[in-house]
Nucleic acid binder design. Structure first.
Lengths: 144, 144
DNA sequence: CACTCCACTTGTATAATACAAGTATATACT
DNA sequence: AGTATATACTTGTATTATACAAGTGGAGTG
């Protein structure tokens, strides 16, 4: 990897966080803020098999933060917490039917926004960008 | 742009913000948090020609937020505010020698971290990723 | 010269987060 | 078996980045 690429990526990443944050924080897109959206997505992803701890690890968030976010989602009826049959301390988080609908709805809205931003990109650029982002995110995970 | 690419990009972006935020928020890398780092960079970038307003536009941040961040940088001696000779209401933000050193130092630390993350990437992937990120960030700017 | 507009600062509220303390269960060691 | 330690979770509190609102003083326009 060339030094110049690292320089570019480093700076553009910093800018990107700023921009994405202003796009998604302090504004709910659809009904879900970014944290809630991601959490709901992740719960759907490991459907019914993960508790607060697992998810806080995946997101590198403090467990207390996830606990609160999960409580918020539960209050809205988007998830249910069932006691883990194999561990009396833990809960398993499951998405409800309503939660699934809300997730789909929000996903769609976000994809529309993203689609508009990427309106003029070619198929190859989009494909390549998606794959590189996926790879970058995967890289993060290996690192702790 | 294919639908599948948009789906991937949308989701990976959401994850990316989470990961980058946890990497750079609530933790200073070097001596600067992300907001301060970006602000200092931007002040260096339009050296001496931009005030709080211009920068808040560039970052899509409220002017009050930038005002406070600039005050913090000034307190640390990283920038100076000189009255705009052409507009009695405005200031021009200039990076100090110390500020320049700090910026370089921080940039280096950040690049090292990024370099480690990208350790196993090929030159082509890195180059391509950098360019796509740059393009994506530029796309944002056109949109308001 | 009066009125509106704008750059900036300061006060206040909110939201996402971390850290710390507390509870209840699980696990390990003797 | 009993005790000590570790773990999953919740709740309390502090911090930080942000937005919005109000205020000040200079700019621009009729």
């Amino acid at each position: 990897m060339e030094k110049r690429s690292i320089e570019t990526i480093e700076l553009e990443m910093a800018v990107l966080v700023r921009r994405l944050t202003s796009l998604t924080t302090y504004k709910k897109i659809g009904n879900l803020d970014r944290a809630a959206y991601l959490l709901l997505h992740q719960i759907a992803f490991n459907n019914g098999t993960a508790g607060v701890k697992v998810i806080s690890d995946e997101f590198q968030l403090d467990i207390s933060t996830v606990s609160r976010q999960a409580a918020a989602l539960e209050n809205k009826g988007y998830i249910t917490r069932i006691p883990d049959p194999e561990d009396g301390r833990a809960y398993l988080l499951q998405i409800t039917e309503l939660g699934g609908e809300i997730l789909d709805e929000n996903r769609q809205v976000r994809q529309e926004i993203m689609g508009k931003l990427l309106m003029n990109w070619s198929d190859e650029e989009g494909d390549s960008f998606g794959e590189l982002l996926r790879k970058f995110n995967a890289t993060f995970l290996e690192e702790d």
